[in-house]
Computed example of a mutant assay.
Amino acid sequence: MLPIKKAIILILCISKFGFLCSQSTEIRGKVTASSDIDRIHIINKTANRFTITNDDGEFEISASINDTILISAIQYKPLEILVTPFMIQSKFISAHLTDKITELDEVVIGKILTGDLLSDIENSDKKRDLNFYDLGIPGYTGKQKTQSERRLHEATTGSGLVPLNPILNWLSGRTKELKGQIAMENIDNAMDKTKSNLSELLFNTKVLEESKRVEFFYFVSDDPNFLPLSKLNNDLKMLEFLQKKLEEFKMQIEDD
């Protein structure tokens, strides 16, 4: 049987360890990798907390002992780190990410290309089309319009003193139809981008069966706040929005 003094010390040690395990601490971190280390996703899967790295790969996140930290980016393999007592004591985490490599069989067809676009076009059998600059004419260099945007432009512009074409299209409802089509295309593009960037992080913390995920993202895209939020290019705000929508979606499924 342990002496009373040793028993008291043991109890105090156990209590202190239990306190450390339950205590949440702000931990600094540093991510290293072969290339870009900014805007890498850092998520505490246990405590459901999220942040991103700055331009130097540094971050801060709240964590406790035995929490699981997931570090993830599209171009790197996901890395999970279990928070240890030493990390809590030092208040620092260091992580190195490995590149995602998709190996393909080497295939050489025709002439070997150098990587210089203009040079490769000139050396290939296919001749490039003449552009504005070949003819010495200044041309449009802005963002190319989609097919729907071009149709809307044609439907809403006209020539002469009275632009008859826009008036007829407005009366027939074609202009409204084209605007609606462009709005749907913008939502679809934003939804595809959101799924690509944040699906892994979202479903790592809030599980949803694979067969329901497509339905979920259409549920998200119906929210009028989705498109304006996607234009902010803020992953943190978008992830928080998706987490709230996922809770709503699960409640809706349970009610059906």
Rank of each mutant, 00 (worst) to 15 (best):
L113C: 04
S24W: 07
M184T: 02
I40F: 13
D129L: 13
E122N: 12
K212A: 05
N189L: 13
N204C: 09
M1L: 12
T156M: 04
I81L: 10
I43T: 08
I14M: 14
P228N: 01
D188Y: 12
G160S: 05
D125Y: 15
S172V: 00
M238P: 09
I69K: 10
P224C: 01
M191L: 14
G160W: 09
Y76M: 01
Q181D: 07
S221E: 02
V107D: 04
D56G: 05
I121W: 15
G57M: 01
I37V: 15
T98Q: 08
N165G: 00
E154T: 02
W170I: 08
E60S: 11
I4S: 14
S119V: 06
S35M: 06
D120G: 02
K45S: 14
T175A: 11
E240F: 10
S72C: 01
Q89I: 01
S34A: 12
K244I: 02
N233Y: 09
I137Q: 15
N204D: 06
D256I: 05
D223L: 04
T157E: 08
D235Y: 02
T98H: 01
N44H: 05
R151C: 06
Q252W: 08
G18K: 05
L135M: 14
G57I: 02
A33P: 00
R174F: 10
D192A: 15
G29H: 00
L236Y: 12
R128C: 07
V107Y: 07
L10V: 03
I65D: 14
F203V: 08
K193S: 06
T194D: 07
K212R: 13
R150D: 08
T114Q: 09
S15H: 04
I121G: 11
K16N: 13
T141F: 11
L239F: 08
G173F: 10
L239E: 02
G173K: 13
N197L: 08
V162N: 13
G180A: 02
